[in-house]
């Protein structure tokens, strides 16, 4: 890496550790999210873990690297997509009778593809929570944060 890159972000040890572990954190988040109806976990925890993997990247490598992997437009797109999936599944329940009806076939218990709409709702919730929290963190990072008195001097 060039010397210009080395100035953003933290030391070499932190960057190497982050590069080695960030994939596993992302994978663990996807596992927690997709098995939310079979084992402990679910949409909230999975979404926040996925957001934390990108936050880890941002803390280690500086904001430019993380924002090139996941730009802010993509973040807001994912958040709106999560809300839209949630609402459309809820509205599709009207085909069988009422709001939030579990209208897909239940499947066999203790398998990954079971429980009707619950995995899809988990996916929607995790998209919304993860994208929202990453957007909040990006907003905090971009805020130049020092008292106004020092700025005028």
């Amino acid at each position: 890496m060039s010397s210009k890159e080395r100035q953003t972000g933290m030391s070499v040890i932190v960057r190497t550790t982050a590069r080695l572990t960030v994939g596993f954190i992302l994978l663990y988040g996807i596992y927690i999210l997709s098995h939310g109806h079979v084992s402990p976990g679910g949409g909230f925890a999975g979404g926040v873990i996925i957001a934390l993997s990108f936050i880890n990247l941002m803390l280690a490598y500086g904001k430019d690297t993380a924002l090139s992997k996941l730009p802010k437009a993509v973040t807001s797109f994912f958040e709106n997509l999560g809300a839209l999936i949630l609402l459309s599944i809820a509205l599709l329940g009207f085909t069988g009778g009422y709001f939030f009806l579990n209208f897909i076939a239940k499947g066999e218990p203790f398998h990954l593809f079971s429980a009707g709409t619950i995995p899809l709702l988990n996916l929607a919730i995790s998209l919304k929570v993860g994208a929202g929290i990453f957007a909040i963190f990006v907003a905090f990072v971009l805020l130049k944060y020092e008292p106004e008195k020092n700025k005028k001097e």
Binding site: G36, H37, V38, S39, P40, G42, G43, N102, K106, G107, P109, F110, S114, A115, G116, T117, I118, L121, N122, I125
Partner: peptide
């Protein structure tokens, strides 16, 4: 059809 009762309640 969800084996996790908490997930079946919240979703």
């Amino acid at each position: 059809g969800a084996t996790n009762v908490v997930a079946s309640i919240i979703l």
